[in-house]
Design a binder for these strands. Structure first.
Lengths: 229, 229, 229, 229
DNA sequence: AATGAATGAGGCTTCATTCAT
DNA sequence: AATGAATGAAGCCTCATTCAT
C-alpha cells in the first residue's frame, strides 16, 4: 500500500505494509488461492451486511467449512477485512500513479482519474462498500492506520492535478482544490450504494456523465458565476 | 414524516409513522425533555462509533444512569436510533417542501435545495452520519421501511425540479435527471464525513462553492461537451 | 495490599492496589456480599482444578447462575482470582506486621510468624493452593505484578528478623538469611498440598512440630556442625 | 519406574510402565534422538508456561515444524509430559535406592538423600517444575496414576530411614516421621521455583546449608525443646 | 517425516433486555 | 425513575487432534 507518503518515488510502491499483507506474504502462491477465495466471500458478506454484523460463522458457512477453520488462514476477522481493503487500495493507487505518469494536461489526467474511480466500482464493489460503511468503525483500531495514510496519498495526487489545472488556466481559480477533490471523490465512491451492474447505465456512462457536469456544469447558455482563470 | 408516499397532499405530513414517534407521542412534556436529552446523547455516540458498536451501556453511562434504566424511556435500542433519524428526516422534508412551494424557477429552487442540504450538516450532523454509515444495516429491519419511503419522496421532489429545469431549457438536456439527483445528493451528505464546524469554511460557503461548480462546471473557456437544450 | 515496599510506614497499609480491589472498592457493602460469595466459590474451584482448568461456566454453575451473569460482578475471570489472592495477601501481611510490632526478641517473633503461616493454612487454604500452583502462570500478566511486590515485602520482614536474631547471637551465624527464609516459607506453604483439616494433626501442632525442628534440629546429642554465634 | 511398590526387589526396576514409555520403547535409535529432543523442548515450555498454557503449536514452533507433525512422534500432548515426568522419576528413584543400599547409618543416608534431591535441581529443573506446578492438574487423569505410586515409593524409602534413625537414637523421637519427610521433601523441590544455576549458591551449597539446619537447627546454645531419644 | 487444511468441542466475553425492588 | 441482578443468545477465537497428500 502506498502509505510511504511519497508519490514521486515509485520503488516499493504497493509493498505490503498492512498487517494483512504481512500475513499474506508468508503464504506461498498456491496456498494463497484458497485464502483469496475466502477473502472474496467475506468481502461480499461485509458489503451486504456490514463488517460488524457479519459473523465469522457466516463467512465459514459460505465457504463450507467450520468457523474455527477460518483461523487456519487468518489471525482474526479484522485480518480478513484488512486484506479486502488493502487489496483495493493498492490497485487504486497504482492506477492513479499510472494516470499521472502520462504527463498529459490536468484536465485529461483528471478525466482519466474520474474514469479510474468509476472503473473500480464494479471489480471492487465490495471493498468500496465496506470502506464507505465501516470506515468509521475500523479506523478506531490502530491496525487500520494505514488506511488514513493511503487516503492522504490519494488526496495529494488529486489536489496536485487540480492545482496544476488552475495554474494552467484550465480550471476556474475561484474553487478550493481540496474541497473540490473531496466532493469529486465522494461523489464517485458513494455511487457504490446505488450502482448495480447490468442496469440502465454502466460505469463508463456514469463516468462520462459525471465528467460532463463536472467540467461544464449543469446550466445551459453563458456561464453566470464569477471566474478569473 | 413523509413516508405516506404522497407529495401533493400535505395534511398529516410530518405525522408520526415511525415506531419511535408512536412512543414519543405518548410522553408528557417533562418526560419528553429527559427523553430528548437521551436521544441527543445517543445520537452523538451512534455517529462516533456506529450504531452497532455503541452499547446501551455506553449511552446510559453518558447519561449517568444504568443501562437497564434506559428501558423506562425507550422500548429498545432501535427505538432510539429511529427517533434520531426520523427527527432529521421530518425536518428535512418539511424544508424541501417549503422551497418547492415558492414556485420559483427550477434553478432557483435547486440552488435553495442545495443550500438546505448543506444547512442541515451542522444541526443534524449526528443523524446524517448515522444515516450514511448505518443505513445499510438498519434497512434490514422492517421497522425502518419508512426510511426508504422518505428517501423516495425526496427523490421525487428533486427529480421533478431537474426535469422542470430541463423542460424550461435551463438545464442541459443530455444528463439523466435521476442520476444527476443522486450525485448531487451524495455530494452534499457525504460532506458530513469531513466537515467540521469552525473550520476554514462554513456550510454556507460550501453550498455556494458547490452551486458554482454544479451549474457552471469546473472548466474555464467555452464549454466543450455536447448539449442540445 | 502491602506493596508499597515500606514496612515501617503503616499508613495506607492494606490499601487496595490490585485491579480487583479497585473494582471491589466501588461496590457498596451490601452488594459486596454476593460478590464475596462468588469469590469464595471460585476459589474452591481454582484450588481443586487449577485456574486455567476451571471454566467460568463451572463457577457460575456452582453459584446457580449463568456464566454470562458472572460478568455483572467481575470484569473477567482474572479479576476473580485476583480478588482471591489479594484478600489472602492483605490478611497475611497485616498479621506479619502485627507480630513484628510486638518488639519481642527475634526467636519469639520468628516463632510467631511460623505460627501465623501455618495458621493461614485452613482459612486461606484455597488461596494458598492457587498461589502455589498457578503463580507461574499468573505472573505472566502485568496485572499481577503486585503479587511480586507483596512477596518482596514479606521477604523483607522475614529476613530482617533472621538477621536480627543472628546479630543478637540467637541464631547461628553460618546460615544465609535469605536462603533460610525461603526454605522456611516453602516448608510452610507447601504443606497446603497435603494438609487436610480434621486429620491427625491440626495446624497448631504442625507449627509447633516445625518450630522444634527448625530451631533445634532433627539430631539428638551434641550439635555436630560448625557455629559461631 | 518404580511403581511396583517393592523397594528391595530390583529386577524390572525402571521398566516402562507409563504409557509414554511404552511408546518410547518402540522407537528406533535415530528416531528416538529426534523424539528426545522434542521432549526436551517441550519440557522447557511446560516449565516456563505451565502444561495447560503451553500449546502443541508452541512446541512445534520451537522445533521448527508444524503442530500436526508432532503427532508422528507422540500420541498426544499428554504423552509428551508423561515422558518428561517419568524420565525424571526413574532417575530419582534409582539414585535413592543406591543411597539406601550403602547400608550406612540413617543420618548418613538421609544426608545423602538430601544431596540427591538438591542434585536433581539442575539436570531435571524443567521436570521438577512441571511436577510442582501441574501435578494437581495431571493427577486427574488415570494415565498419571503411576505418579502417585512413585510418590508412595519415595515416601516409604524416606520414612523408613527416619524411623531407623529414631530407633538408633540418632534422631529425636518426638517428631512425626511422615510429617518430617513431607517437610523435607517439599523444601527441597520447591527450591526449583527460585533456584537459578550460576547464582550465588550452587546446589551443593544449598544441600549442605539445609542439612545443617535440618539436623542441628537454627538456634545457638543449648537445645531448648523437649526430647527423649 | 512433514505439510496444510480442516474438525469439533469448548472457552471467555459481550450485550440487549427483563424484572423485582 | 432508577437500581442491581440476572438472562439467554450469540460472538470471536483457541486448540488438540486427524488425515489426505
Amino acid at each position: 500500500m502506498a502509505h510511504n507518503g511519497n508519490v514521486t518515488t515509485r520503488k516499493n510502491s504497493g509493498t505490503a505494509t498492512s498487517p494483512a499483507k504481512r500475513q499474506r506474504a508468508t503464504s506461498s502462491g498456491a496456498a494463497s488461492e484458497r485464502r483469496d477465495h475466502l477473502v472474496k466471500l467475506a468481502a461480499e458478506l461485509f458489503a451486504r451486511k456490514g463488517f460488524q454484523a457479519t459473523t465469522v460463522r457466516e463467512i465459514a458457512d459460505e465457504a463450507g467449512i467450520l468457523s474455527g477453520s477460518l483461523y487456519h488462514h487468518f489471525d482474526s476477522k479484522e485480518t480478513i477485512v484488512d486484506e479486502v481493503l488493502s487489496t483495493f487500495l493498492d490497485d487504486l493507487i497504482a492506477r492513479y500513479r499510472a494516470a499521472v505518469d502520462n504527463n498529459s494536461d490536468a484536465r485529461t489526467v483528471l478525466s482519466e482519474m474520474v474514469r479510474i474511480g468509476f472503473g473500480t466500482l464494479e471489480p471492487h464493489r465490495a471493498a468500496i462498500t465496506v470502506m464507505q460503511n465501516d470506515w468509521n468503525y475500523l479506523r478506531q483500531f490502530e491496525r487500520f492506520n494505514y488506511l488514513v495514510k493511503a487516503e492522504d496519498e490519494v488526496e495529494q495526487i488529486w489536489v496536485a492535478q487540480i492545482k496544476a489545472g488552475q495554474a494552467a488556466g484550465l480550471f476556474r481559480a475561484d474553487v478550493d482544490p481540496k474541497l473540490t477533490y473531496r466532493m469529486i471523490r465522494d461523489t464517485i465512491w458513494v455511487a457504490v450504494r446505488w450502482f448495480r451492474p447490468g442496469g440502465r447505465l454502466n460505469t463508463s456512462a456514469l463516468a462520462e456523465h459525471y465528467i460532463t457536469v463536472l467540467f461544464d456544469g449543469l446550466a445551459t447558455g453563458e456561464r453566470t458565476t464569477q471566474r478569473q482563470g
